[in-house]
Design a protein around this nucleic acid. Sequence first.
DNA 1: ATTAAGCCTATCGGAATTATAGACTAATTG
DNA 2: CAATTAGTCTATAATTCCGATAGGCTTAAT
Lengths: 148, 148
Amino acid sequence: MISKKSKYALNALVHLARQYGEGPILISTIAEEENIPQKFLETILLDLKNSGILGSKKGKGGGYYLRKKPEEVNIAQVLRLFDGAIALLPCVTFRFYERCEECKDEDTCSIREAFLKVRNESVRIFKNETLKTLVEREKVLLKKKRKK
Amino acid sequence: MISKKSKYALNALVHLARQYGEGPILISTIAEEENIPQKFLETILLDLKNSGILGSKKGKGGGYYLRKKPEEVNIAQVLRLFDGAIALLPCVTFRFYERCEECKDEDTCSIREAFLKVRNESVRIFKNETLKTLVEREKVLLKKKRKK
DNA sequence: ATTAAGCCTATCGGAATTATAGACTAATTG
DNA sequence: CAATTAGTCTATAATTCCGATAGGCTTAAT
């Protein structure tokens, strides 16, 4: 399971992507509309800002906004920022690599190979899922629902 | 990341699968050879027994053995037993389903769809990875290594 | 009866997660 | 330039989960 942080971050980012280019949005607005505890959301948005994805403006008329284009931000980036590796075993990640303590020989570990397959597929899918595709899909889903 | 329990369980199961049909194996043997804390391993093997995957014999000459055939036990089963859902969001699993608290409308959640794709691929891969294929792959990897 | 081995219950320490409080800083506006 | 608005920083509380251990109980073989 991913952390609440990652989930909240994704919801906040999609919220911002919906209004991309329309100026800063208040933390309090995002918090209310997305049902996220405001103080918690503050730390999350700060992290996103420090990683270069978001920008902020202080004072009246301030708030947060997307600094990158929606198509340049994908789910993999967000998960890695808040939850670390996407892989399910430390020995199958590249940037968060760690040896499994109990493992006798990584080179002949068949379990490792199985988890490597899953990691590679997951990363591939998550990289294709950008804020742009998410917002677009949302629209499609909305239309479908209205027809019912 | 998966829990140590799942990882230890998989290592223990592969160990038992290597000697499938050759009678019970001591907890202490598995613990030593697979570098697993024995007391911890006891609880794990019990869970595997209660789920029907393993059988046990008490007393002298006792130990644990595979009750199911190696090709009938896959990684998905093991992960679900110890870590619950394979999905990364509670709203994309079937047997462990829970609504995301903050979610306004599941039907139009584009994030949900993205995570559903990942879940489906992961489950597909994990179901294909059985104790049989793991043991076989191990042999292949060993041969490859010896050639070097 | 003795001994070997798995079974059961309880519990502990530590880490991570989720969340909150409160003071501080920067920018806007009248 | 004072007042207000809104993001930033530091600290810490509350919970939950995980990995691990202890110790006694039960069962089966010899």
